[in-house]
Write a protein that binds this DNA or RNA. Structure first.
Lengths: 202, 202
DNA sequence: CGGCACCCATGACGATCGTCATGGGTGAAG
DNA sequence: CTTCACCCATGACGATCGTCATGGGTGCCG
């Protein structure tokens, strides 16, 4: 019985290479491949794959959001997240989105094949190194609002801009930022954004 | 006559997939693959490939620096840069580093194969969309020192830190940053760093 | 009900930042 | 030699930022 796979990945070259390679693997069949997150649900509804390989960084909606929607729309399709960045927050988000597998792209293809088989059989496949990292890092210390402010701070320059973007007073924004800066051990708004982004707390 | 290829790419999964796929292509032979920029020259000296496929973002030294060193160390090996980010500055840097080809990873594999063949025969293969972008963007407006200061600003938080890292007075750093901010049309040091990074002027 | 955490806001303080004017030193181009 | 661009530095100014104290509002939980 062959395992039917859907591929979601925005880099055309990588997507093509993976599709070709997985098709060669005995017992695998790549039934579709998409380049955008917002095409995942539609493709899965059409092809009914056993496993969906989702990148996180994609145009449209990201892989995590796609996984969330897939869980209710096509629950029989198991999700494996394959991402470039081993951010601990990503693993948390992926698991709570119902993903059964989580690998970073810096792992050999043999492990990817093994993970696909394991997940197709109803098991799980989590990158062990990332699991310990996620445990040691812990969850985000930021309150939801602090997260919002920090996320808006990435891109817009001045505090006034952020305040305008969130319909808040400038003082409130400064307070949230100050709290975030302290919690993250940063000394600048920019540093705080950098840290939160690296840990996947954005 | 087969084309001998060396692969330099830090993402294991991508590297493995490309190696497998290119090996299947008739007339191609992947003679080696490395994961770090500082292993490129050594591997090329050992294997003498016709074409070296270099990623830019790599640990050790980046693909551009590797291309520069390769030109004097193993001049018979032609360089093709394959990178994730289509930053105009990258194309400039790659060409002046002696690269014969330049593609972004968001292009089909068939075009990669075609580019490899063209370069192996002594021709060139430049992504046309990027070429026009590089021409319209133009070269970096930053002076060398402004570039240094901006590069140091990415990471270190306060001006005092940057000044310490470059053995400068805080005032001088502020002046260079002010000039860079104006030239880039930014309103914040962080914004200026962001813009310069996106255009490949870091 | 009484904590408790989070949200929003205000005001004030010192530190830092971005801008400008100014000046001296170097090296390449005319 | 003059001009020009770049480098480094200093000082001063106003704007912004990060911190703190304080207060009122909400909703959850023991």
């Amino acid at each position: 019985m062959t395992i039917r796979i859907l591929l979601a990945e925005d880099q055309t070259m990588f997507r093509g290479a993976m599709a070709a390679l997985l098709s060669l693997e005995p017992g695998f069949e790549v039934v579709g491949d998409v380049a955008r997150g917002d095409q995942v649900v539609g493709a899965c509804e059409a092809f009914r794959p056993d496993v969906a390989l989702l990148d996180i960084e994609m145009p449209g909606i990201d892989g995590l959001e796609a996984a969330r929607r897939l869980r209710t729309a096509v629950p029989e399709t198991k999700v494996v997240i394959v991402t470039t960045f081993g951010r601990p927050g990503y693993l948390h988000a992926a698991l709570s989105a119902g993903a059964k597998g989580f690998l970073i792209k810096d792992t050999p293809i043999e492990q990817l094949s093994a993970a696909i088989r394991k997940v197709a059989e109803g098991g799980q496949a989590i990158d062990p190194a990332l699991a310990v990292a996620a445990l040691s890092e812990g969850a985000s210390p930021l309150t939801p609002r602090e997260r919002d402010v920090l996320a808006t701070a990435r891109g817009h320059g001045t505090i006034a801009d952020i305040a305008r973007g969130l319909h808040l007073s400038a003082g409130t924004v400064r307070n949230h930022l100050s709290a975030a800066i302290q919690k993250l051990g940063a000394r600048t708004r920019a540093e705080a954004v950098e840290i939160a982004e690296r840990k996947g707390w954005l």
